[in-house]
Design a protein around this nucleic acid. Structure first.
Length: 485
RNA sequence: CGGGGAGUAGCGCAGCUUGGUUAGCGCGCCUGCUUUGGGAGCAGGAGGCCGCGGGUUCGAAUCCCGCCUCCCCGACCA
């Protein structure tokens, strides 16, 4: 047509990732009906389709948490402001982003209440009350809750003012046991990310500058988004006796000595959903791993008038058989939309498998199968479709993880200088020898906006000069840097 | 909080520079008929405090002042 300033006319298309990754993300979250913006800046409404993903994720993580002896409990939303002040680093870390209640019940409060940004302090207070003897340890508690952090730059799922998460809090008699606990928790996260979310992650330790406020050490899993930026997907903290000393969490040991507990905390949030979107999505929309897909299989009946009734009935029957086999399936029998419109809609929503069922299929006793990864369609005998669906979904899950793993590997490059690092962080992780000094991290950040993401647990031993300053490397292995969300 | 951009129908936008009939277009939505294997067609229809407040003017979506919100880029962060 004419090159006049007409409306784009392709409103149905998603902005391509290459053109504007942020726009792609924002449009997709809205259009796939995962979430919407709330009336208060930075807040998010999780819509049913998005919330279902969270429920599935929750189910997987909760099962692992419970299987290892942790118990769920619930602590209050409001925390006396003074609690935050008891741990110096902790209050310093969170002060800027606290929401504080100053007025309630029609009058000013004697003591201001903070809306929890995390619950170390209240839980510490309660632990102090509950723990007396080594016989009370370890105390293994988890809570599912909302928390509030007044972020300056909100982004749906990735950084919202209020978000949902799980926070584990444990107390132990020995440092070794507490450290082992943080590794166990990180194991939940790695497993959920990889095996359930099909998302490749790097597990490692945070450098001092990236550590949780009040922690001795922080472990993390870092994922790589399709634009080459890293996302911290979950963290696990060894708190030493920092909170035990601040809240007087003590126990009498077997030897009769009064000691401070060693505590941990660890969390995974709704941010993980943002990671799944940006880690797997493409220009057509979401790509959901079957284990987290609210709808694993969509059946699209195709046919007009007389054919329609029969085709829909057969689609329902097929769906019933799949459901009986434990598959989450939906029949899209909306009459006012063309098949093509439905194909595009379900692809945008990331449904792993689509079954097309039309007169031609029925005549041949097959369903036309299209998978969200890959282009083609294949005809598969109806009984076989049902019988093989679990393995088809499992294969999809594996293929998605394999793709994510290959992507992460391909986009991780060693660098021996700031210039090489700059190139590497342009597409993903830069792996460098690092002296461990904040000065060098700052140099990198200023030059490239990249930050240290983690010291990977599975990296081989290696020493040498720091890629930035040339001084001897720390950590005994390479450190990953990237631009991060 | 600094720099940039934008607020007009559910969504995407035009109109504003140079004030002037009833504020348009695409998509979506509703009704009817025809359609159905990759974003259907025709006909009819509904839907607007033009972000908010003030000012200028006979008259403001349009000009002026103030405020608010959203988006993008930075500093802070799960």
């Amino acid at each position: 047509m004419l090159a006049s300033p007409m409306p784009r006319g392709d409103e149905k298309r998603l902005t391509p990732q290459d053109e504007d990754f942020s726009a792609w993300y924002n449009e997709l979250v809205l259009r796939a009906e995962l979430a919407d913006r709330g009336p208060v800046r930075g807040t998010m409404v999780m819509r049913p389709y998005g919330y279902r993903i969270w429920e599935l994720l929750q189910g997987e993580l909760d099962a692992r948490i419970k299987a290892t002896g942790h118990e769920n409990a619930y602590f209050p939303l409001f925390i006396p402001e003074s609690y935050l002040h008891r741990e110096a680093e902790h209050v310093e870390g969170f002060a800027p982003e606290l929401a504080v209640v100053t007025h309630a019940g029609g009058k000013d409060l004697e003591e201001r209440l903070v809306v929890r940004p995390t619950s170390e302090t209240v839980i510490g207070e309660m632990f102090a009350k509950w723990i007396e003897s080594h016989r009370d340890l370890p105390l293994l508690i988890n809570q599912w809750a909302n928390v509030v952090r007044w972020e300056l730059r909100p982004r749906l799922f990735l950084r919202t003012t209020e978000f949902l998460w799980q926070e584990g809090h444990t107390a132990h008699a020995t440092e070794a046991e507490a450290r082992a606990e943080t590794a166990t928790a990180l194991g939940f996260y790695s497993e959920v990310a990889r095996d359930v979310g099909a998302l490749a992650v790097v597990a490692g330790d945070k450098t001092a500058s990236e550590r949780f406020a009040g922690a001795v050490t922080t472990m993390t899993i870092e994922a790589l988004m399709r634009d080459g930026r890293a996302l911290q997907a979950a963290t696990s903290h060894f708190l030493g006796t920092n909170f035990a000393r601040a809240f007087d969490i003590t126990f009498t040991s077997e030897a009769g000595v009064l000691e401070h507990c060693q505590t941990t905390s660890w969390g995974m949030s709704t941010r993980m959903i943002g990671g799944l979107i940006m880690g797997h999505g493409d220009d057509k929309g979401l790509v959901l791993p079957p284990r987290l897909a609210p709808i694993q299989v969509v059946v699209v009946p195709i046919g007009r008038d007389a054919e329609r009734a029969e085709v829909v009935a057969r689609a329902e029957a097929l769906a019933g058989e799949l459901r009986a086999g434990g598959v989450r399936v939906r029949v899209d029998d909306r009459a006012h939309l063309s098949p093509g419109a439905k194909f595009n809609e379900w692809e945008q929503k990331g449904v792993p498998v689509r079954l097309e069922l039309g007169p031609r299929d029925l005549a041949a006793g097959v369903a036309t199968v299209a998978e969200r990864l890959g282009e083609g369609k294949v005809a598969v005998a109806l009984d076989e479709v049902v019988a093989t669906m679990p393995e088809r979904l499992a294969a999809f899950q594996q293929a998605l993880l394999a793709r994510s793993t290959a992507f992460l590997a391909d986009r991780t490059a060693p660098a021996a200088s700031l210039a090489e690092l700059a190139v590497a962080v342009g597409r993903g992780f830069a792996s460098i020898l690092h002296c461990g000094r904040v000065e060098c991290e700052d140099t990198v950040k200023e030059a490239t906006t990249a930050t240290p993401r983690c010291v990977p647990h599975d990296a081989p031993d290696e020493e040498g000069p720091c890629a930035i300053c040339g001084q001897p490397s720390a950590y005994g292995r390479r450190v990953l840097f990237a631009r991060a969300y």
